[in-house]
């Protein structure tokens, strides 16, 4: 079993939180993990990514090879496309639909969606919309993670463990709202996959 995941977004959007939840989930499952993060200059509103590799065998490289990622998980639609060379032939792309526009030459959003829809395996989710529906606007990143659950090698309890580990010190309320966000993302994915 191996799962190579490319997390994408813009600095400050919370992809490291997604990475941490997955990391804890892998730990809970006793799987090997390597997680390469971006720190430093790019965190200031620039494009950021994280390579997450999970396997029941020993993992060598901290980076995923081109064309080998099983999943691109993105909290921003244009950013999801930046890492297409990493995606394997049958890999899935799961992305938030809401653009984060902090550059003057952001492309027309419908053409961005069109590019994503060219892929055989993709899910576009209005994570911000869903997050505000459940009154948990800060958890849109976790909603996106929820939509990727069918493509990840974990059980629900592993995510619970991860969310508790990450948000536990912020109080039970925050833990619950993140679990709810995760569930909402997962439900959305179910409805469109069926």
């Amino acid at each position: 079993m191996k799962s190579d995941i490319l997390l994408a977004g813009v600095g400050g959007q919370g992809i490291l939180s997604i990475a941490a939840v997955i990391g804890y989930a892998a730990l809970n499952r006793n799987l090997n993990l390597k997680q390469a993060e971006v720190h430093g200059m790019s965190q200031r509103g620039g494009a950021v990514q994280s390579n997450l590799r999970i396997s029941d065998e020993e993992i060598s490289s901290d980076l995923i090879q081109s064309g080998m990622a099983d999943l691109i998980l993105s909290v921003e639609p244009m950013e999801s496309l930046r890492y297409l060379p990493m995606l394997s032939e049958n890999g899935w792309l799961v992305t938030n639909s809401k653009p984060y526009i902090n550059i003057p030459d952001y492309p027309d959003i419908d053409s961005v969606y069109d590019e994503i829809k060219k892929l055989p395996n993709h899910i576009i989710i209005d994570a911000d919309g869903i997050a505000s529906e459940i009154k948990s606007r800060k958890s849109s990143n976790i909603v996106v993670l929820g939509a990727a659950i069918p493509f990840l090698p974990f059980e629900w309890e592993d995510y619970e463990f991860g969310i508790n580990k990450l948000f536990g010190r912020k109080g039970e309320e925050i833990v619950q709202s993140n679990l709810e966000a995760l569930k909402a993302g997962m439900e959305f994915c179910k409805t469109i996959k069926e």
Binding site: V10, G45, G46, A47, Q65, S66, G67, M68, M78, E79, L81, R82, Y83, L84, P85, M86, L87, S88, E89, N102, I103, D105, Y106, P107, D108, S111, V112, E115
Partner: peptide
Amino acid sequence: PASKEIPSLVANR
């Protein structure tokens, strides 16, 4: 392995 191109519309950020 074969890999896809980055679509040209993707702008630098």
